[in-house]
């Protein structure tokens, strides 16, 4: 098993996507199917940008084993009041600044849901959010 760990800073749109890029390189080196790789890194990138756009800071924990990839993003931030609502396409509280960066369509979580085999979101208002994404390598 391989474990990777990255830190994310809220508001840092210069480095957003760095972790996703690193994970993409690793998956390529491990010869993971390019279609699965794309689904994993698109999901991770959406989740990474969510921490940058909506939270204060966070950490990404990646676990790659032979049959699955588990990625967990743990952030300190405002949390999500209503996770079901946040999952709806088009729902967004993104600031004007975030919209100017090309985000805030309210599609990220729906995108993640579509691209992962399992998605678990735990959130506590005024504390933070944990997003866990699991992709199976054998059944895809």
């Amino acid at each position: 098993m391989m474990k990777l760990d990255y830190k994310i800073e809220g508001g840092d749109f210069t480095n957003a996507g760095h972790a996703s890029s690193e994970v993409k390189k690793v998956l390529k080196k491990l010869n993971v199917d390019p279609k699965i790789t794309r689904r994993v890194v698109v999901s991770l990138y959406e989740a990474e940008v969510n921490v940058v756009a909506h939270a204060y800071r966070g950490e990404i924990f990646v676990e790659i084993s032979t049959n699955k990839i588990i990625i967990k993003l743990v952030d300190e931030g405002p949390g999500i009041h209503n996770v079901d609502q946040a999952m709806e396409e088009g729902y967004s509280t993104a600031s004007e600044e975030v919209r100017q960066m090309g985000f805030g369509a309210g599609m990220g979580l729906a995108n993640i849901n579509k691209n992962t085999d399992e998605l678990n979101i735990y959130s506590e208002v005024n504390k933070g959010t944990t997003v866990e994404m699991i992709t199976y390598l054998d059944k895809n």
């Binding site: 210069t14 996507g17 996703s20 890029s21 794309r38 890194v41 990138y45 960066m101």
Partner: peptide
């Protein structure tokens, strides 16, 4: 019409 670093990151992730 969006020209920033995340435009490139998005392209990278989407192949």
């Amino acid at each position: 019409g969006l020209a920033n670093l995340q435009t490139i990151r998005t392209a990278e992730m989407s192949d």
